[in-house]
Design a binder for these strands. Sequence first.
DNA 1: AATCCTTACGGTGTTCGTAAATATG
DNA 2: CATATTTACGAACACCGTAAGGATT
Lengths: 303, 303
Amino acid sequence: MLMSMDTHLLRTFVAVLEHRSFSRAASALGYTQSAVSQHIAALEADLGARLLERRPVAPTPAGTRLMEHAPALLLRLDAARADIARLPDARPARLTLACSPAALTPAVAQALAQLHTATRLLDAEVRLLARESVLEDVLTARADLGLVDGVAAPSDPLPLPDLGPTTTRAAAEQPLAVLFPAGHPLARRRSVRLTDLTQARWIDAPDTAVPLDRLRAVCRTDGFRPRIRHRGTDLHGLASLTAADLGLTALPLPLAATFPGITAVPVEEPRLVHRTELIHTAHPTATAQQLADLIPRHGEAAS
Amino acid sequence: MLMSMDTHLLRTFVAVLEHRSFSRAASALGYTQSAVSQHIAALEADLGARLLERRPVAPTPAGTRLMEHAPALLLRLDAARADIARLPDARPARLTLACSPAALTPAVAQALAQLHTATRLLDAEVRLLARESVLEDVLTARADLGLVDGVAAPSDPLPLPDLGPTTTRAAAEQPLAVLFPAGHPLARRRSVRLTDLTQARWIDAPDTAVPLDRLRAVCRTDGFRPRIRHRGTDLHGLASLTAADLGLTALPLPLAATFPGITAVPVEEPRLVHRTELIHTAHPTATAQQLADLIPRHGEAAS
DNA sequence: AATCCTTACGGTGTTCGTAAATATG
DNA sequence: CATATTTACGAACACCGTAAGGATT
């Protein structure tokens, strides 16, 4: 009766927790409530521990532990499938590029344009995603190439989770800036120390380059408490929140300087840069490699 | 008919490639040859690609791709199971510490001794493993605590693969040294540049702190070509190979200085250290935490 | 009472082993 | 011809859905 933690079971487990309901998870997965119930029961029997509280549905401690593994496992399972699926095809002419919000720089756009004229490329697609989703898209072959941005020490790689075999390469490094509303007292300074701003009001924008928990990690502090949260990839909207004095934001300096009502001040301390990295699988398609070669580089690294 | 890449199938797939034979894999797994054959057939049907060549058994390109994912997947599956299994137990009194070869320093031994007297600890075990295996042991709960060593830039973390939720902490940083046989012309120098030694004869010791591919990565060169390879965790034997002029080795300076027939010369450029890191799961056992707290620290980081 | 999850039960389809067939070197 | 993998087949079993049973709000 004890199966070896079948992937089906993990999938429904995750779905149940996402939907906080057996029945909703069931219809989402195309199963019966009964089947979902049996799946969870089987998992619990297999692992010898209760995983979920019911009514309301919530994870037990053991369920929480399992949840720390299951999504990554399922993602990697999909990645493996995708890696094999894209192996033998006559390459479809479509090229898909997944980008986190601030990673789509003019240089990238130019590279795309070059490729377009050079190869009479039929179809290219750019997907703007939350930074967490880019790696996922590349691993599952929803995108041929990815561009993620974030903050790091100069010439350090971004700390990306290692969910499968990928290759990473620095595409750009730009100075990091804090955005102030135009009249802000600190807006006249030539540079700021991040460590002076731990107690300021910040906007947490977890889908963009600089989630606040990253700033906390990089500055080794537990300041940077968010006043409000901004979800999504709309940097212009984010900047306008700052312009309205709802809180501070950090963005790459050249980009930050383009927003109206904003004064961007470079970060002086700690020594940080806004870095963009190019991601592709260990075995990129030919066109993907072509585009990758057209995107300027700024150093090198691989995983 | 298409299953969702069942974990059984992956397990037998890996076993078949490890044993290079359907029949040997079958008996290793407690199956019939027939069952193994059916497993592989099912996987190939599911993924729509031939995975193995038969007679002799060897991976096809698609099989190679799958092999880039399957072991990590299975490891993480075991890690999840272990994470849950060790959750509710009344703690068994045994504490297991997994160490890579040069990570077991006097400070660690002292910490163990302290714990032993402080808690009248019934049973402690130290496992000396190849550096790759330490993380694996911690994830699967074969060890409560891990110590891995390697080279990195000062105060940079070691690049460990992210195969599951773990916490990492620097335990020590020591100067890195190159080992020369006692009479070697360079052995009289006060320090050496690694970049001057890319063309020298090296011993590759992939199970110890400084595999040559790591040196290549860190020096951004493709030198450091191995003359011979040394497997295993026996540093004394490794040093004696160097003493016999079979090739150079890099080790932490204080340790290197203890070997007879060897002159250890500190590395001056690039700026590198030998670093030891303490690993435990995100939810360590009480005794594991106790020991961890007794081991001196040298900075901090988490994943 | 309504909603939601669990349990009982039967049909369908899958998995395994035995054994015969087939391919390879 | 010997060894190794595949295929055929039947029995045991697992899985899902229907439907009835509990539990919780």
